[in-house]
Amino acid sequence: MLCCTRTLALASLRSAHIPVLDFLAPSIILYSQKSRFHSTPSPIEPPANPHAEAIQDEKPPIHHLNKTQSDFLDSALRVNQAGELAAVLIYTAQTPPLIRSHPHLRPLMKHMYDQEAGHFKTFNELIAKHRVRPTAMYPIWHAAATVLGWGTAVMGREAAMACTEAVETEIGGHYNEQIRVLLDWAERCENRGEDLGEHIKTLIKELRRIRDEELEHLDYAVEHDAKEARPYELLTNVIRGGCRTAIWISERV
């Protein structure tokens, strides 16, 4: 019987035109049988942890602002919006007389104006989003910024740039203080295992971007001879004092 089976196997292989030596046939048949019944066992996986997904998805609780923090945020957004409005008005008033005498400054003035207009738009959106009351001093700041811009431009290029240097020095410092406070909130929340929330994280990011652009304007002003203005010390000190006063009032009114 074994001989017949072997003969049939060899005949089948030869009929398929496969050159197989006679003594290999039993080995081929045996290997085929082993491969069917002796496959390599798959590795045993540890039992799934039913709580693993829940642990992975667990997020820290969101911190809710207390009254002091909410009041700080309201005053910060209010004064920032007012400050960016003033900056837009200053550049609007400075540009015509300045580029009439110094046409090469047109691209620089446009660049700074466009950035300030973008800042103003950002704070308008944030004021609306957080339902913050704008300052009641809008009409006064509107007039004061326009007069400051036009007056320094008439005094000359150096005075106009000194105005930019003074304003951006105060505004840059003011933004730095706001960022410091918000980062302190974030650190305290992290220590408590809380999340400050996406809206505050986004605000910190925006404040950093706007601060950097404001300080860029300060650098432009110094590069264009702001310190050559006469009287430089008197002019910049008066403007910086006015900015600090406007910030203090806008935070409260």
Rank of each mutant, 00 (worst) to 15 (best):
D195R: 00
P139A: 09
H38I: 06
K34G: 02
D195S: 03
Y220P: 04
P19I: 07
L207C: 07
Q178R: 12
R180Y: 11
Y91W: 09
Y175K: 08
K110D: 04
C3P: 03
R14I: 06
A153I: 01
Q81I: 02
P103T: 08
F23L: 15
S12R: 14
L65E: 09
I18P: 03
Q94H: 03
E116K: 01
A221F: 01
H63A: 05
I18A: 09
A226L: 08
Q81M: 11
R36T: 15
D57G: 10
H142P: 02
L21C: 10
T92K: 08
T68V: 06
H64G: 01
R240Q: 14
G197N: 06
L183E: 12
W141F: 15
N49E: 00
G151D: 09
F37R: 12
T135C: 07
S12Y: 14
N176G: 10
V167D: 01
E45C: 13
W248V: 12
F37M: 08
Q81P: 00
R230W: 14
L8K: 13
I210L: 01
T202I: 10
A25E: 01
G193A: 10
V20T: 15
Y220C: 07
E116G: 03
F120R: 04
V88D: 06
R240W: 02
L2G: 13
P107R: 14
G151R: 12
A229Y: 03
R209S: 12
R192N: 13
I99L: 05
P60W: 06
D74P: 03
E251L: 06
C189N: 08
H102C: 08
V132F: 07
P19F: 03
M137P: 00
C4S: 14
S42M: 11
T92D: 13
V253S: 15
P231F: 07
V132I: 08
A16V: 11
P61H: 15
G172N: 07
D71F: 15
D22L: 10
V20M: 12
Q69S: 01
N237H: 10
Y31A: 13
K205E: 10
H217M: 05
A246C: 04
T68D: 12
Q33D: 05
K34R: 10
H224I: 05
H174C: 00
F23Y: 13
E194G: 03
M109L: 15
L30I: 03
H104L: 10
R180D: 14
S32C: 14
H217K: 06
K59N: 04
A11R: 13
L105D: 02
V253P: 00
L24A: 09
L89C: 03
Y91C: 00
T122Y: 02
P134L: 04
D22F: 14
A93Y: 01
A160E: 00
K201R: 02
A186D: 08
D225V: 04
R36A: 05
I99A: 08
F37Q: 05
K34E: 13
M109I: 14
T7K: 13
T236K: 04
G197L: 02
E214C: 03
R209Q: 04
Q33F: 13
E177V: 10
A166Y: 01
L215H: 06
M161H: 03
V147W: 09
E165A: 11
V132H: 02
L234R: 11
E116S: 00
S27Y: 07
V20A: 11
Y113M: 07
P60V: 11
